[in-house]
């Protein structure tokens, strides 16, 4: 009765707020509960498991940092880490560069643009398992089509996938072949959002193709490029299926191709060393975190935002 209009408005807006909160919590509930059960709890559980001796079905025992001590004391983890980083070096620069060049070529009024784009994207819609099967066949040392073709040129090809010197590079080639179309699609979408007035103006100023590419295209595409490189690096560090399918443990080149995720999988689900495997995955996370941090520092220096 004595409530002033202001107080009444406040009361109404408070009720409205409560109503809004209720709706919000209702709507996010499935996602938040799901993330809690599927991600938050497992994250901490993995950290904790890395401190346990947990083998097979036997009882678990808290052993502090012993898994880490064992891991960092083994030659395997360093070799695997190096393999993983090598794989990143072999795939990311080449893959992103090829995607950028192809996208630049397609970002013109060229005929058949959608067809080309569709073809380059093909490997993305094929399961890596099937892709790995056909590449194993192509790379086959005796009967594979690649070495047969080389033989016609008078070259005796290496045993691509079972020679420790070539196996990781062969895996990287398959990796680049698989992902170039995906990166191309993202970069092309970025290129298409660049206003054509920049190119028209520079043409009037007499800029050639290379100048346009490095002075206009690269700076304006740098946010997309940054995203693509970041995503590609993450995926390369986490590389599992292609290498897992191409090189089996009995292959003489296994040691020189096994990445962190390959030994994580073996330790966790073939040897059932859950504790040790958790230590491996925590180590992988640290590496990913470090590389991400470096990239974000680089982003501030190199990426140009309009």
């Amino acid at each position: 009765m004595t409530a002033s209009p202001v107080q009444r408005d406040l009361r109404i807006s408070k009720a409205r707020n409560k109503n809004e909160w209720l709706w919000a919590y209702l709507l996010i509930a499935p996602t938040i509960i799901g993330l809690g059960a599927l991600n938050v709890y497992p994250f901490f559980d993995s950290l904790y498991t890395s401190l346990l001796k947990s083998q097979g079905l036997g009882p678990t025992k808290f052993i502090g940092l012993q898994n880490y001590a064992k891991m960092f004391g083994s030659a395997e983890i360093w070799r695997t880490t190096l393999n993983t980083l090598w794989y990143v070096v072999l795939t990311v620069p080449v893959g992103v560069f090829l995607a950028l060049v192809l996208a630049a070529l397609l970002n013109t009024k060229i005929r058949g643009r959608d067809l080309y784009r569709g073809i380059y994207f093909l490997p993305m819609v094929v399961a890596p398992a099937a892709i790995a099967m056909v590449w194993r066949w192509i790379f086959n040392a005796e009967n594979g089509i690649l070495n047969q073709a080389l033989l016609m040129l008078g070259i005796v090809g290496p045993k691509w996938l079972s020679d420790p010197n070539t196996a990781l590079a062969a895996c990287a080639a398959v990796g680049v072949w698989s992902s170039v179309g995906y990166d191309l699609v993202l970069i092309l979408a970025g290129l298409q959002s660049i206003s054509s007035t920049y190119y028209e103006a520079s043409e009037i100023d007499g800029a050639n193709w290379a100048q346009q590419f490095f002075r206009i295209t690269v700076p304006l595409i740098s946010p997309t490029l940054f995203f693509v490189i970041l995503m590609r690096m993450m995926n390369s560090i986490k590389q599992f299926d292609t290498i897992f399918m191409l090189v089996k443990p009995e292959n003489p080149a296994f040691k020189s191709t096994a990445t962190l995720m390959v030994i994580f999988f073996r330790e966790a689900f073939e040897k059932f060393n859950k504790g040790y495997a958790s230590a491996v995955v925590v180590w992988s996370m640290v590496i990913i975190g470090a590389i991400t941090a470096v990239q974000f520092v680089a982003e501030k220096k190199l990426v140009y935002y309009e």
């Binding site: 991600n39 993450m234 859950k274």
Partner: peptide, 30 residues
């Protein structure tokens, strides 16, 4: 919508995106 703890809860979503999924796999399997 505006609601309390929005930023914290959204951070939860983002952090899942940043982490490698393999860190969740063993506990999910168990």
């Amino acid at each position: 919508l505006q609601f309390p703890l929005k930023r914290l809860l959204f951070f939860l979503v983002l952090s899942q995106l940043m982490l490698p999924i393999q860190i969740f796999i063993i506990p999910q399997y168990v």
